[in-house]
Amino acid sequence: MQDKELLSAIREGGRAKRLAVDHLFNSHIGMMQTVQSKLHLSADQIKDMYADTISATIWNIDTNRFKGESKLSSYLYRILYNKSVDLLRHTTTNKNVAYLELAEESSALISEDQDRILESSLDVQIVKSELFYMGNPCSNIIMDWAFWGYDMAEIASRNNLENADKAKKKKYSCMKKLRLLLKSKGISDL
C-alpha cells in the first residue's frame, strides 16, 4: 500500500481505515528494534512508544496535520525516536550519558508530535476509561463512529441494529449516557 493510498484510506474511515491501520501497524514493527538498540529502552518501553507513535500518526492524519509531505515511514521513525528520547529524558537518572546527549539532536522535531495534546488532559483519560467500562453495545458504537469513522449503515450492521436510523438513535443515546457517566465523575464542563 502506497503512502497516498494509506492516508486516503485512513481519512475515508470504516473498513478502509481498519485495513490501513493494520497495514501501518504491521509494516513498521521493525523500527522498534532499531530505536531500542540506539537508545537502550526496555522491550516494554519501546512497545509503548510504538503504540503511541501509531496512535499519534493516526490522529495527525485524521485531523489533517499530516498530509503526506514527507515519507510516512520517515515520519513514523521521527515520532518514535523523539518520543523515545523524551521518555529517556524523564526516566534516566544520569542526564550526562552520551547516548542521551546524542539523542538531543532530535529535540527540534519534537513539536511534530501532536499527541501530547491527546495525553495532556486528565479529562480525556477519564473519557477513555468510561468509554471502555460503559460496555457494549455503546462502547463499540462510539468507537465505530469516533475512531473508525464507520457510517451509520455500517454501524447498524456491525452492531446488530436494524438500519442506519436505529444506529443513529442508539449512538445519540450512548453519547448521552457517556456524558452522564462523565458528569458523575465530576467532569461537568463537557
Partner: peptide, 29 residues
C-alpha cells in the same frame, strides 16, 4: 468540546488496544 473529548478518548482507547497487541511481540530485548 464534548465531541473532541470523545474523539480523543476513542484514540487513547485504541492506543491501549495496540499496546495489548504488541504485548505478544518479541522485540529481542
Amino acid at each position: 468540546d464534548y465531541f473532541l473529548a470523545v474523539k480523543k478518548g476513542a484514540h487513547l482507547l485504541e492506543r491501549d488496544q495496540l499496546r495489548s497487541k504488541l504485548a505478544k511481540i518479541d522485540v529481542r530485548n
